[in-house]
Amino acid sequence: MISSRAGRLGLFVTILAGAVLTAAILAWQSRGGAISPEVVDREAKRLVGHYAVMLAVVAGFYFSERNAAGDGTSTAVEAFVLAMVLVGTWSLGPPVLIALSATIESAMRHLDSMSVIGASLASAALAFYFSRSGKADESR
């Protein structure tokens, strides 16, 4: 079992870490004019949209719960691991793709080709985990 609060925090931090890492790698790759400012601007907006879906799910749960959900409760480790794998892959995928692809456009093409599946799985995993931890809190 894992503390619901720790699990939620872990998932949230993973999403934030992915977003920050993406911004850092994009800035590093574009240094010296290696990517035009207008292209950086365009792709950065698309990447914000990438993380906005997951952050919206997380924010929705946090704001909808009146009490501090997960305090003193725990959820199954399997559920947390599943959520962490799906969310981690979808959050840390963009920085890895940008770092390994020859061009930013090819990285974004790869990301777009997986967007429907990736966003669906990551959002579903987040919703599942947060709802489970919330129920655990209510049953206390």
Binding site: S30, G33, A34, I35, S36, E38, V39, T103, E105
Partner: peptide
Amino acid sequence: ISRGIHEEAWSPQPA
């Protein structure tokens, strides 16, 4: 026109 090493499109830049 110019192109960065990490992008595909050629475009005229101020530089």
